[in-house]
């Protein structure tokens, strides 16, 4: 039993920066071939970082809210690398860190959150399922503390991230007989989005440090990504339907 990913083909959405980029680097370091996807040019930067470290990666420009984009990314992965073993849906709306109380959420904001997080999951599930193999196939979705605890500042983000947990639990039951695991990871990580939040609310950083028993916000590559690699590996094959909270002990309510 190993937590290596040698020869596995892993597609990561929203991997132009932040946690998505860290996941690509860690998966490649563990031996996976990585399909980097995202709507912007920074996806190519992630792919270049992977290859500079000796890994294999391919960038496919993808808007997960568009079914044809996801179909194409999956097809390119399968044609280029001979298959697809795992999908990590990490992409979130560009509005994710915009503070917007429930009363102020308008149709456009709500629709964008739903399109990227939720419809993106649906598109990934539809496209990837035919390729995911029994015993090897993994479908992993990044959720958020805002889903577990609610959020005054980011209720739309929390709602769609909560929806992902519901979807993952049911998909785990649905795809279990196919030998495919489905899980969520809820990270607390230092990301560009959190950097933005710090700028808007300078009191947030010391508050976070105080509320996290381990006393710091996680590093995407070294604290969060290893858990994802584990779940994608053979070592994680009996874990399904779970939300793995990787947050330094901030949330202990499960």
């Amino acid at each position: 039993m190993t937590d290596r990913l040698d020869g596995r083909v892993v597609l990561v959405t929203g991997s132009g920066a932040g946690i998505g980029r860290a996941l690509c680097l860690a998966c490649a370091d563990a031996g996976a071939v990585v399909v980097v996807t995202g709507p912007g040019d920074n996806g190519q930067e992630t792919a270049t970082l992977v290859t500079d470290r000796g890994g294999r990666a391919l960038f496919v420009r993808t808007d997960v809210a568009v079914a044809a984009d996801v179909d194409r990314a999956v097809a390119v992965a399968a044609e280029t690398f001979g298959g697809l073993d795992a999908v990590v849906h990490n992409a979130t709306s560009r509005l994710s860190s915009r503070v917007e109380p429930i009363d102020e959420i308008d149709d456009g904001t709500w629709a964008d959150h739903v399109a990227v997080s939720l419809r993106g999951t649906y598109h990934c599930a539809r496209s990837a399922l035919p390729h995911l193999r029994a015993g090897v196939g993994r479908f992993l979705v990044m959720t958020s503390p805002a889903a577990l605890e609610g959020s005054v500042a980011l209720p739309a983000y929390g709602a769609v991230k909560g929806a992902l947990r519901g979807m993952a639990k049911s998909l785990a039951v649905e795809w279990g007989p196919l030998g495919i695991t489905v899980n969520c990871v809820s990270p607390l990580a230092q990301t560009p989005a959190l950097d933005n939040a710090y700028r808007e609310n300078p009191a947030l950083a010391p508050r976070l440090r105080a509320v996290v028993p381990l006393g710091r916000v996680g590093d995407p590559e070294h604290d969060i990504a290893p858990v994802v690699v584990f779940l994608l590996s053979d070592a994680g094959r009996y874990i399904t339907g779970q939300t793995i909270v990787v947050d330094g002990g901030r949330f202990t309510g499960l």
Binding site: P101, I102, A146, G150, G162, L164, M167, K169, E174, G241
Partner: peptide
């Protein structure tokens, strides 16, 4: 979770998360 019920589970879990946000706010 339940097989064949991912949409309903997704909607309900979104509602639960939104309820927590609203409860706080």
């Amino acid at each position: 979770g339940a097989a064949g019920m991912a949409p309903w589970a997704a909607v309900a879990e979104a509602q639960r998360a939104l309820a927590k946000s609203a409860g706080r706010a």
